[in-house]
Design a binder for these strands. Structure first.
Lengths: 192, 192, 192, 192
DNA sequence: AATGAATGAGTATTCATTCAT
DNA sequence: TATGAATGAATACTCATTCAT
């Protein structure tokens, strides 16, 4: 990605996170990026149009974290637990901005844009499930890539609920994690 | 709910749906509600504060639909499938506004408000699972109410992904439904 | 005219005169009118849309000046000369703003608006010519109202040229006046 | 004129005509001229400074049209009518841009610039009147060059009024032409 | 309770102009 | 000469909110 575009994206991420969608100003963003006001519009047509670029960064980071920290030789159950941890960690850190991205999706009717962004994420988790399937750790009929999407959705929902309702309560969060993991293990047929 | 408050809420729902969070104006809302500009502020302290009332309406409608159309004597699998249909239907119709509510949650730090709103929804689905547990249709260790939250999250994610990525393709949507149902049935231990 | 609308119009006139079309700001205008920024837009949809209201004021003033200072019993030649003086005087005072109105006409494609504004002016001068015709001071075939428009156009052109090219030279201006008057007297058939 | 300068001028003419003074951008102009943004400023110090060059082009074209199509041996009345036609035609085609030039004159206080530009136009029509005078077709006391300015002003006013008020009505336009011609013929003493 | 005219703070966006190449 | 990326000042307009009636 173009250097300036990247700078803008990262600055926008911080600003949106701190101030929310409406309070965030382009002025804040360019100040953070160290560029002039007008330069912003050479790279993005509007304030909201930075959203997909931010989503891309988040997906990249999630994938990178998974790839770096995941030990593919671990028992599948441990892999799943580790992935759950990552999802909770990212949700905690970026939940505000996820909401904005989510809200921004509606406006931009270019759905294929979003699909392209999340594709590598589904691919990665799909691969994890495929390997587990080869090893017989999950049920036979499972379609790895498609289940990956459901799994990610499940974990993200759980994390979101966790931070939304049980906010600072560490115990409740741990409980939620256990339940989500149990729910997923059954769903994937790890106990059959 | 007060008649005027209800009018405002319903009008706001339409306006937010059509115009999005930022383009929607209080002026639009009051026009739709047939009241004066100032009257809005007798019922809501700010534009965004209508959001919880809208969420409440959506939850009410979902619950009412479930209660009306659900046959609690059906086999559990059919109940689950029926519930899935309802989630997909509501997501399709209200997905734009769900996103706004979701994004609005972040701003309003009164998390207990949101919890209170969704509570009856979790209660309803929790009851469904509880009955299924009594009949031995789901696994023994399952905690009905807590699994309800995960189940709802799963189905909503699936529906959201469906309408986000596979937009108008009826076939893909059906496939997604089947997978989500299968995923849930395993998760709930219906096959063990 | 509404009191606030009038205040805005008069303030805008001054501001446009002093700063020109582009340098004039709505902020200047409302400051001069002693109202809030937003109030401007309750009365005019845009900065340029004040132009017709300004034109109306100018026409009103011209007419009022004619009516007050014109002695309808004077010999026609003297009446014409007096009218010429008035045109030169108004052109000198308002020439900058006339140019803006003129330029603004193009944008506003509601030509009937302009016609309605200038109508009473043509009416007034038309009446002057009609009376002169009755008295046999101008040629018989003359159509008063239609000639009025040509006469006004001629005098305004003359004045405009005068102040545009011969700017501060009082002698040249006097010469121009004489020629314009002579030209008009011949055109109206006062010498035949 | 330098080739690039000419290109810029012609492009600016089109852009100003289509978009008006404020909406027209240097970016539009250079795009139309097929040159780079910065190149504009090698030939003109500012956006508005193109205006005199445009006026020059218009005067040139008017003169060229007169010289090409005018038969100086025709009876004077016919010459005058032909000239009137040309004025109406040019006004119709360029009236939007005339207004801008007119408005632009005020800003640029270099009045001598404008005088120099229009000088050859007055010269041309002045010559026409001088010849007519020699032939006894107009009154004796007439000062050709000075009357030329009044004549041009009269015809331009008539045309402007015509297109401003009677816009598309061909009949009304014809009527206006007849009246303007009659007015001018009397003014010039062709009937005495 | 209801009104709606008035407010005025707030900002995305534009674009004339510059300047390093 | 020519370029066009970068600049950043400048402003029309919006709209949530208030308050006198």
């Amino acid at each position: 990605m173009d250097d300036k575009k990247k700078k803008i994206t990262l600055s926008a991420m911080k600003v949106f996170q701190n101030k929310g969608l409406e309070k965030a100003t382009v002025s804040d963003i360019v100040k953070g990026a160290g560029i002039a006001q007008g330069t912003f519009y050479l790279y993005f047509p509007s304030k909201l149009s930075v959203m997909p670029a931010i989503a891309e960064v988040l997906v990249e980071r999630t994938i990178k974290t998974c790839e770096k920290s995941m030990d593919w030789t671990m028992p599948f159950e441990n892999q799943l637990e580790h992935f759950l941890e990552i999802v909770f960690q990212f949700t905690k850190e970026y939940r505000d901005i996820y909401a904005l991205i989510y809200a921004g999706m509606g406006s931009s009717k270019q759905l294929d844009v979003w699909e392209a962004i999340y594709e590598p994420y589904y691919e990665l988790i799909g691969n994890m499930l495929a390997k587990a399937k080869q090893r017989g750790d999950v049920r036979d009929q499972l379609i790895p890539k498609r289940s990956a999407a459901l799994l990610i959705g499940l974990f993200e929902s759980a994390a979101e609920q966790s931070f939304l309702y049980d906010n600072a309560d560490e115990k409740a969060i741990q409980l939620k994690k256990n339940e989500a993991l149990d729910f997923a293990l059954h769903a994937l047929g790890c106990f059959s």
